[in-house]
């Protein structure tokens, strides 16, 4: 049950991270450490979401009950 709630929270976080507003902050043609800031941000955010998803899945099986 907790897992379902965590995933809803994660969805809200991801929706914000991927929102045009959040992405808008980085819509400048500047390089950060040799990489476009926008590209860096998008893939970093993406990676964080995937990592959190993996975490949720890894914890899952123990409390894998019904939703």
């Amino acid at each position: 049950m907790r897992r379902g709630e965590r995933l809803v929270g994660l969805f809200l976080l991801a929706a914000f991270l991927f929102s045009p507003v959040a992405i808008g902050f980085f819509q400048k043609p500047v390089l950060v450490a040799g990489v476009p800031a926008l590209l860096l941000y998008v893939f970093a955010a993406w990676g964080v979401v995937v990592a959190l998803l993996a975490l949720a899945a890894r914890r899952g099986p123990d409390e894998d009950g019904q939703a």
Binding site: R3, G4, L7, V8, L10, F11, A14, A15, F18, W46, V49, V50, L53, A56, A67
Partner: peptide, 10 residues
């Protein structure tokens, strides 16, 4: 699809 992946559970 990544966002949808978060919702897969539901």
């Amino acid at each position: 699809p990544t966002l949808a992946g978060v919702l897969w559970w539901h």
